[in-house]
Simulated assay, not measured.
Amino acid sequence: MGNRAPIHITIGGTLPREHLEVFAAHAADYDLRTEWDGEPFDAAALVAGEPLELYGTELNGGQIPAVDAFCCEHGLPFRRWSGGCLGAFMPEIVLYDGTGPLRDYTASEDEWVLFPPSWIKGFTRLRELKREMARAELTIPPFVLLRGARA
């Protein structure tokens, strides 16, 4: 059955409306909700001017690979926290800024990025550490549905 963990994902960016049905199907596959133990995701619940916040519980490995892949395919920035499973895996935060590779960090159970001592010891200057800490904080833009096809 695998180890299960919760997730919280914040998604932003612009998505052509014609792709919303596919996204909603992915959200339904993982039983993603608009709040912890709240209602299942429904596009009608989108709040104008805000990023999309979704929550899931009891997810295999604390992962939602189809949602991550969909966001990457469509250039949608996101921040996903996945809880840990004692003896199996640590909590993590995965960031995607809309381009480039995913960045992942060890996290706490209350969604804070953690820097292991080995990382910290690897920095030779305080400003290098501060720069990396800033990279680990991604501001997610509002989630916007575009009426027509994107050019």
Score class of each variant (00 low, 15 high):
residue 42 D to L: 02
residue 17 R to L: 13
residue 9 I to G: 02
residue 131 R to P: 00
residue 92 E to G: 06
residue 131 R to G: 05
residue 18 E to L: 14
residue 85 C to K: 07
residue 108 S to R: 02
residue 9 I to D: 01
residue 123 F to Q: 07
residue 22 V to W: 07
residue 44 A to V: 05
residue 119 W to I: 12
residue 94 V to K: 10
residue 34 T to N: 11
residue 17 R to A: 15
residue 138 L to E: 10
residue 16 P to D: 02
residue 55 Y to H: 15
residue 96 Y to P: 12
residue 46 L to E: 07
residue 3 N to Q: 08
residue 39 E to W: 02
residue 122 G to K: 14
residue 83 G to I: 00
residue 126 L to V: 06
residue 87 G to R: 11
residue 99 T to K: 10
residue 116 P to E: 13
residue 30 Y to S: 00
residue 102 L to E: 13
residue 66 A to Q: 07
residue 51 P to G: 09
residue 111 E to R: 15
residue 132 E to T: 06
residue 82 S to Y: 00
residue 148 G to K: 09
residue 11 I to Y: 02
residue 35 E to V: 04
residue 119 W to M: 12
residue 65 P to K: 08
residue 29 D to M: 01
residue 72 C to N: 08
residue 144 V to K: 15
residue 34 T to F: 07
residue 110 D to T: 14
residue 133 M to A: 14
residue 102 L to W: 12
residue 114 L to I: 14
residue 69 A to Y: 08
residue 29 D to I: 00
residue 29 D to P: 00
residue 46 L to M: 10
residue 71 C to I: 04
residue 1 M to L: 07
residue 110 D to E: 12
residue 104 D to I: 05
residue 89 F to L: 08
residue 28 A to S: 13
residue 106 T to H: 13
residue 144 V to I: 14
residue 25 A to R: 04
residue 71 C to S: 03
residue 41 F to S: 01
residue 92 E to C: 06
residue 116 P to N: 10
residue 97 D to P: 07
residue 68 D to K: 08
residue 7 I to P: 00
residue 68 D to H: 11
residue 84 G to I: 04
residue 37 D to A: 11
residue 28 A to R: 14
residue 137 E to L: 06
residue 65 P to A: 05
residue 122 G to Q: 12
residue 16 P to F: 04
residue 44 A to W: 03
residue 68 D to Q: 09
residue 150 R to Q: 12
residue 12 G to F: 11
residue 6 P to W: 13
residue 147 R to K: 14
residue 129 L to D: 02
residue 58 E to S: 10
residue 81 W to N: 00
residue 92 E to A: 05
residue 140 I to R: 14
residue 141 P to A: 10
residue 30 Y to R: 02
residue 62 G to Y: 07
residue 143 F to S: 04
residue 130 K to P: 01
residue 112 W to C: 08
residue 3 N to G: 13
residue 33 R to L: 03
residue 25 A to N: 08
residue 79 R to T: 10
residue 56 G to L: 05
residue 101 P to K: 15
residue 104 D to K: 15
residue 81 W to L: 03
residue 113 V to D: 01
residue 5 A to T: 05
residue 16 P to T: 01
residue 91 P to N: 00
residue 24 A to W: 09
residue 119 W to E: 12
residue 49 G to L: 06
residue 127 R to N: 12
residue 40 P to F: 01
residue 110 D to I: 05
residue 19 H to V: 04
residue 28 A to C: 06
residue 126 L to F: 15
residue 28 A to P: 04
residue 107 A to I: 07
residue 90 M to H: 14
residue 147 R to A: 15
residue 18 E to R: 14
residue 73 E to M: 09
residue 87 G to Y: 09
residue 101 P to Q: 13
residue 83 G to R: 02
residue 15 L to P: 01
residue 116 P to H: 14
residue 38 G to A: 07
residue 131 R to Q: 11
residue 72 C to M: 15
residue 130 K to R: 15
residue 41 F to M: 01
residue 9 I to S: 02
residue 82 S to N: 11
residue 76 L to Y: 00
residue 142 P to L: 06
residue 144 V to M: 10
residue 87 G to M: 04
